[in-house]
Design a protein around this nucleic acid. Sequence first.
DNA 1: TTCCGTTGCTAAATCGGGTTAGCGCCCGAT
DNA 2: ATCGGGCGCTAACCCGATTTAGCAACGGAA
Lengths: 356, 356
Amino acid sequence: MSPRRVTLADVAKAAGVSRPTASLVLSGRGRELRISQDVEQRVLRAAEELQYRPNIVSVGLRTGTSRTIGFVSDTVATSRLAGDMIKGALEAARERGFMLFIGETEGDAELERLLLQAMHDRQVDGLILASMFTRSIKVPKGITAAPAVLLNALPKQPTPLPAVVPDEVEAGRRAARVLLDAGHRDGIYLIGAGPRLRDVPAQSVAAVERLVGIREALGEAGVKVAGARTCPDWQPEYGLAATRDLLRTAQPRALICFNDRIAMGAYQALDDFGLKVPADVSIVSFDDHPLASWMRPQLTTVALPHYELGRKAVEVLFAEMELLTETDRADTDRTGEVHRVPMPVRSRESVSPSMA
Amino acid sequence: MSPRRVTLADVAKAAGVSRPTASLVLSGRGRELRISQDVEQRVLRAAEELQYRPNIVSVGLRTGTSRTIGFVSDTVATSRLAGDMIKGALEAARERGFMLFIGETEGDAELERLLLQAMHDRQVDGLILASMFTRSIKVPKGITAAPAVLLNALPKQPTPLPAVVPDEVEAGRRAARVLLDAGHRDGIYLIGAGPRLRDVPAQSVAAVERLVGIREALGEAGVKVAGARTCPDWQPEYGLAATRDLLRTAQPRALICFNDRIAMGAYQALDDFGLKVPADVSIVSFDDHPLASWMRPQLTTVALPHYELGRKAVEVLFAEMELLTETDRADTDRTGEVHRVPMPVRSRESVSPSMA
DNA sequence: TTCCGTTGCTAAATCGGGTTAGCGCCCGAT
DNA sequence: ATCGGGCGCTAACCCGATTTAGCAACGGAA
């Protein structure tokens, strides 16, 4: 059935040379070590014919390397987001011949410890510590055993680890500018957080930063937020409740919803009050959940670039790995750089020019 | 920074014994090989103090094993489904001390070949070949090098590989019974596929099997499908179009939508025609996409048990792995068993008793 | 003829752990 | 005093690849 792997010894034997000779030829060092053309050809031919592939486990033992990186996240199952992030990381890793170990901690510190240990036991060359929603996390000790990168997360304490996060502040600005560009200046309300910077769900980096960006862009244009409603959790039902509450006392011309699920609730509330999107009320949102293009009218939203985040994390990790081998951990006390990945606006149908 | 791993040699030295002795003690074979209590204690203490952990790569080289399984899917980024499946697999694997390699083929056969090779190079102990929507796939050659299981996929040609799939036929029956139990007997229409068995999207196992189940349960009750509309793709926009088309000529009392996204489109179409769910039209659907509980009224749907599918695949794989080591590949020409995972009904608000 | 310098390859050690065969020692029996 | 046998441990080899040091063989020069 499985006819035993072809090993280097098999190739050497077939070529009539010793194992080291075959190794030298196959690793391309044949020239510099003066292996004859004849032998080189014989080895290459034998390797080809036997379909030789080096056993990475063995190389790993020798070199301490595994061509593998560990991807540890709190949850992979929360929405599609995770999938895209993993996909980006997967492809970037594959391009360099690396595989990905996936692990899930469920936010459990003990599980996280065990998982990092298990990955360490398998000699991963690097680690990505991912969070499925942008937040600040406590960096586990012992992470420094291998190069590591934080993904979609910021360290609570200062660490030398670099971080890759979406540029939420700029996203906030962009969302606001979508409305400004459409001529909206009055009756702009926020659903999900605000109006003050402290009116945000706990732990949510996204909420604070989006709010900062929104206020900044509106402020620059001399526009004031007309009002806001917070949501305890960013789910449709709370978006529905918050928007209903708003509509009882106000006549918004535009809503900035803090994510697409809230926007879905807002659509439902507006429908209840007989208001049309975007004719009566324009809506802009965040995330670009698949949902956004299923809604009627399709939702204009500032996308979380999950795929790019995953890619970027791997790229930063590889840079880190090279750095660590080159400098031999010289400047280990530097502080980690934060890489911000731009969030693009997806213009759809939920924003129309202000009639004012 | 990273103070070199503690090896068995370190433990042996600290305990003042030879490497093999330490190995014997730590592998629990000390007793049978008459290692003295004194030495045993010294070794255990040394291992504890040094926080010794065996290097799995090394063990892997010796034993040809890696305590790792490969999870190869066509796409991990399609909807939340994938995440839950991976999560189930992840947890089941972790319970046995196994890690998961994740790989994505994008449906590209060449990529698939390379990926399987890369996993083989890393000596995975088993493989899960997953599809993100239930369908029949061509089983790649060379897969037989390690134990393997098909997940959410059926083999096109007969193979010895077992498969784990959702029980879609029973799901169809259950969906139909939800309506029957509510007293519906007339005006039941299908959106997405049917009414004949050949009116289904290409390659979709789910469509065929759900349809079979629906017709079976309705048939048993002496109820006829009033009509059906197909959708080229199971997306909201097509659900919307199909349902609109239906409503122009018919007055349905109940709809069976072939998935939740179609149901979302159906909701929109019913709204356009001023019809209320479930007062005017009851709706039952499939998948239990997160969407289903965001819709108003919340959607009654037969859930795809992604988490359980992932778990089950790993369990079947482990059984397979044991079998292969025990029997030493004796009965290799047997044909793979198909495991069907039940799909539970999630009763929500979109079905009401028939007024007829 | 001897010595040196190349050329072209291989022996041996290494990585970290596991396994098997067998060595020395002590004890009691002869 | 010698032998046999159990006890307690270790030498030596294995997995598959890489690396370093060094060994033959040959040719040219002295």
